[in-house]
Amino acid sequence: MIRKRVLSPEERIPDIPETIFLFRSCTGSMEYPGTENSIKEICKILGVQVVMDPDQTCCSGYLLTCSAYKPEFSLAVTARNLSLAESRKLDVYAFCNGCYGYICELSHIMLHNPDYKKMIDGVIDQLGYKYEGKTRIFHMQELYYRLKDKIVENVKRPLDGLRVGVHYGCHYLARQYGILDEGGYPTFIEEIIEAIGGTPIFYKERQACCGGAVGRGFTHKENVVHAHLYKKFMSAKKENIECIVTVCPGCNTSLDREQPAIMERSGEAINIPIIDIGQMIALTLDVDVQKLGFEANSVSLDSVLNKLGIH
């Protein structure tokens, strides 16, 4: 039967959780500690408690791709990670598209293949973990969208018409079923941006991939990633976009860290600050900018902060 592709925020998250299990992202906490921090700050304001576990490992997406298609490793790692949330009876909220996509897919594989499930159970049982598939998996952006009205109530520093381009990244929308928007033309982040006072700008290459992929950002910088991103930035530049909001630390890394090199190679001044959606919301909620770790960004955010009257 045809499954429902696009869900309303109420269908996706029927009850607003009191406590969430925040699934940490390697890239997020490593490259942009502010992303993780901003979630904690936003949740504090919105009255949602955040639980994290230092025992949690990499989401295993890297593992899946790098181990040259041996799903067994990744399945076991995913089961172990999810069991950490399940033992607390919490739902998992990932803030990285990669983590979200991979744990969804891997848990789906496990729960629909009894042979895999049995094998993985055998492995993690002996280490003292148990995974039954009860915990549900969400992306943080879904919670923001669900709590949009509550966020708006708490906005103290609206974006003042800031021209914001959105970068959705690929792996949330690639889930295709049971997500918040149509993968071919999503608009829900633009709605959030509009709600907090920004002017969402639809630029031509809005949905072009960040080029980061699994390691392609390391290994194919010059020949693949730069050429690809140059196109994207030029189309954003053409619309006079003042900053790009991402929903995935991986995309954030590609768009931000590669920008100086692309500017150098192309001789064009791009200088578009890249901000995680969590950091953006936190800014409007008047969270202390020191807590948002913007010093980690390669492209300075001063233009945005000045416009908002911070500093």
Partner: peptide, 10 residues
């Protein structure tokens, strides 16, 4: 409009 990529209705 099911095909967001074609922009029907958009």
């Amino acid at each position: 409009s099911v095909y967001g990529e074609y922009g029907y209705g958009i």
